[in-house]
């Protein structure tokens, strides 16, 4: 137990994302309502997005926008050190992932609307009952 605590403190970000991700996974497995399942999927995606963004973080570094790039006093003399800027790659990947997750959420909602129009319910057990009746 004495070994575990410093380990958690050094990597507490991962613990938070794993907990959040498991909340989403549980909702996807155990919830009966289709909308709640979709919301669980969104929580799962959010955990992954946070995980990626935290990977890009560096201590004592600033935003990935080059300072004094245009018209600064020593614009051309200044050497750019990679250690001064946080990693831009996870931000790029997650930027597109967020918008795509919104779009897929929209498609999931559209499917849910169609299911409701046809079967008048979104509860999974009732849906299964309706399907076995036919």
């Amino acid at each position: 137990m004495t070994d575990l605590l410093p380990l958690i403190v050094a990597k507490y970000n991962y613990w938070l994302y794993v907990i959040l991700m498991m909340i989403g996974l549980y909702a996807m497995i155990a919830k009966n309502n289709l909308i709640k399942k979709v919301v669980g999927m969104n929580i799962f995606q959010t955990a992954i997005i946070l995980f990626y963004v935290s990977i890009g973080y560096k201590k004592d570094a600033t935003l990935p926008i080059i300072q004094n790039a245009h018209g600064g006093q020593d614009a051309h003399a200044a050497v750019i050190h990679a250690i001064d800027y946080i990693n831009p790659l996870p931000h790029v990947l997650m930027l597109t992932a967020i918008v795509v997750s919104v779009a897929t959420f929209g498609v999931a909602m559209a499917l849910a609307v169609r299911i409701y129009q046809r079967y008048q319910t979104l509860e999974e057990d009732e849906l299964r009952m309706r399907l076995s009746e036919k």
Binding site: N13, S54, I55, Y57, K59, N87, P88
Partner: peptide
């Protein structure tokens, strides 16, 4: 670790 500048993700391509 959290904020480690020498992590594999922050060393090669970025």
């Amino acid at each position: 670790d959290w904020g480690d500048p020498s992590s594999p993700a922050s060393t090669h391509l970025s």
